[in-house]
Design a protein around this nucleic acid. Sequence first.
DNA 1: GGCAGCTCGGTAAACGCTTACATAGCCGGG
DNA 2: CCCGGCTATGTAAGCGTTTACCGAGCTGCC
Lengths: 357, 357
Amino acid sequence: MDADTPAPRRRARRRPAGPDRVSARDVARHAGVSIATVSRVLNDSGPVADRVRRLVAQAIDELGYTPNAAARALVRSRSETIGAVVPTLENATFAIAVEALQSRLRQAGYTLLLASSGYDRSNESTQVRALLARGVEGVMVVGGAHDPEIEQLCAARGVPLVQTWTLRPDVACVGFDNRAVGRQLADYLLDLGHRQIGVVAGVTRGNDRAAERVAGITEALAARGLDLPREQLIERPYRIAEGQIGLRALLASEPRPTAVICGNDLLAFGAMLEARKRGIRVPDELSIAGIDDLEFAADLDPPLTTIRVPAEEIGRRSAEYLIDRLDGQTVATVTEVATSLIVRGSTGPAPQRGDRE
Amino acid sequence: MDADTPAPRRRARRRPAGPDRVSARDVARHAGVSIATVSRVLNDSGPVADRVRRLVAQAIDELGYTPNAAARALVRSRSETIGAVVPTLENATFAIAVEALQSRLRQAGYTLLLASSGYDRSNESTQVRALLARGVEGVMVVGGAHDPEIEQLCAARGVPLVQTWTLRPDVACVGFDNRAVGRQLADYLLDLGHRQIGVVAGVTRGNDRAAERVAGITEALAARGLDLPREQLIERPYRIAEGQIGLRALLASEPRPTAVICGNDLLAFGAMLEARKRGIRVPDELSIAGIDDLEFAADLDPPLTTIRVPAEEIGRRSAEYLIDRLDGQTVATVTEVATSLIVRGSTGPAPQRGDRE
DNA sequence: GGCAGCTCGGTAAACGCTTACATAGCCGGG
DNA sequence: CCCGGCTATGTAAGCGTTTACCGAGCTGCC
C-alpha cells in the first residue's frame, strides 16, 4: 500500500540503529497537506483552518513526530541552548546555582549545556569554546577573571556572556563584591578585639573570588595598621580535610591567631574539626568564620559564623539576564545580590591576653 | 575590495545582533578551494594535498571560522550530545556523578545536556522528552522506575538509555542493589542486638531507590521475625532539617527505637543533631546510620556509620556505557558498582535492657 | 455580477554542512 | 605512447526545517 513512488531504496547508513525518523514531510503526506502547513501548525505561524490544524495535529501524534532540532536551529540560526561552565559541581554552592539556572532556563524554553573547568583557566577556556561551537546562544561562567579569549569569542559571535560570583562594572555579571565580603568578615573580627587573624583561603591561582576575599581581609587589616604575614595566610583547595590541614599550619605559626577566616564553609568546617581535635575551644580560644552558609553551617557545633551567599539567586538571575538579553530587551548588566554576615556561635570576643597562658 | 558579486543585499534578520557568521563557503573562497575541500580538511576525511591543507588551515584561523554544529548534526544525523536528568543537584551525590559523567563525556567529544526533575516522575518524563527533542544521542536517568514513556521514547528513536543508582536485569544500568543495602544496614544493627529499629527514609513516592532501601530493611527484620510498624517508619525529604524532624517523630513512638537507619547521610546528620539536642548519647543510647558516605560523614561527632556509594564511579561508568554503545560496541548492560558498609562511631551494641531506665 | 481584500495553503529557496560521484592530472608499465 | 589506476579536487545532492512569495478561492460591497 501507498506505493506511489518506486521507493528509491531508502538510505541505511547514517543512524546505524533506529528506524528512519519521521519527518515533517511524512506528517504532511499523512495529513494530506503541504510541509509548510505542518510547520505553520507547529509554530503557530500563519493562518491555518481549524479543520486542517486538527488533521495535522492528529497526524503528528499518530506518527509520533518530533521536529528535528538541528534542522530548526540551522534555518533559524537559533539553538535555544545556553552554556554554563562552573569550577566544579562538587562544591554545593555551584551545584545549587546550576540547578536554579537550569530550571529557569527550561521555563523559558532553553536547554542547558553544562561543563566544568576544575578551577583551571585554560580548561575553562576550552570548555567555553566547545560550548560556543555547539552554538549556545548565551554563556554563564563563574568569576570575573578568565582567559581573555572567552570574552572575545563571545563578543565576536554576539553571544551574551554573564560572569557570576563577582561584580565588575564593565561586563555583565550577577554576583557580589568578594573583597567587601573579606573586609566585612575581618572588620567583624577586628571589632571583636581580635588582632591576630589567620586565613585559610581557597587556592587563589586562577580563582579571582578567592583572591579578592583575601585582598579584602588584607585591606581591613591594613586599615587598622595591621598586616597579614605570609605564614598567617594558608591556601588550600576547598575541601573539609584541607581546612584541617590549613588550621594545623596556622597553629604552628607565631603568634598564634585568635581568629581564623576561612575561604568557604568547607574549609571552616575542617578548621573546626581540627580545633576540636586539639582541644581548642571555639570560640573561647579561637574564632572561626566561613563563607557561603551551606546547609550544614548552622548545624555545626558550635554553629558557624559565615557570610550568606545566595547561590540559588545567582543562578536564577543569570538565567534571567540571558533570557532577557536574547529576547532583545536591554537589561541592567550588573546585578548585585545581597550577602550578609550571619553571626553564630563559632566566633566571639578575642580572648583576653593571658586568658589561657 | 573583494567586490566579486553584486552583493545580493545580505539578509539582516535572523540573528539580530552579531556580524554574519563566517561559513565554510567563506573559508573556501578565502583559501581558493572548494567547500568540499574545507570539509575534508576539517574532518580529515579524504585526501588533501599538504599545501592545500595548510592554505585552508590558515584561512580558517584568519577568519576565525567555527563549523556550525547544527548543520553538521543535521547532515550527519548525529548531535554528539548526551542528556542527563537527575532528581536534583542539591544532593551532593548526584552533583558528583554529574560532574564525572560530564567530564568523561567531554573526553569522548560529547556535550552534556542537563536537566533535573525535582524527584517528580512526570517532570522527569517532560525533561527527557525535551532532551530527546534536542536530539541527544544517549540519556542518563537516576533510578529504575519511571514513566514508561521514557523507555518507549528512547527505544523508538534507538537512543540508548542508562538507568543509574539501581540494578535491573532487563535494562541498561549502572548502580547497586538498594534493597541489599537496606538489608545490610538492618542486619548489621540486628547483629548488634538491636530489636527496635526505626527508619527515617527518603520520600518513597516516585523514588524507587528510597522505597527499595525500606523494603530491604523490612526484609531483614522479617527474616528475624520482626516487623517494621508504621510509626517506626518516617518518610522525609532528603535534607538535614528533615532528619531532625524524622528523629523527633521516631522518639515519640513506643517502644522507642535503639537504632535508626536513615535514607541517606543528610537525614542521618539531622538525626544526630536532634539526638544531641535532646541529650541522647550516640551510640550508647541510640545508634544512627546513613547511606552515601558524603564528604562530611567521617567528620561528624561521632563519625557516621554509613554505606559508601561510589557516585563518581556511577557517573563515569554511565558515560562509558553510552560512549561505547554509540561507538557500536556491544557492552555489558548491567554494571554493578560496589557499595560497602563503613562502620564508624555512630553505631554500637544495643543498650542493655534497663541501661538507662 | 465584478472585484477588492480577505484567509488559507502550496512552492521553493535557503540554512551550512557532508559526501557520493565525477573529473582531471599524473605516473608507470606494457 | 597509450591507458589503467592512482590521487587530489570540484560539483551537487541532499539533511529537515522555516518562511517569503504566490495563487486560489471566498465574501460581501458597490
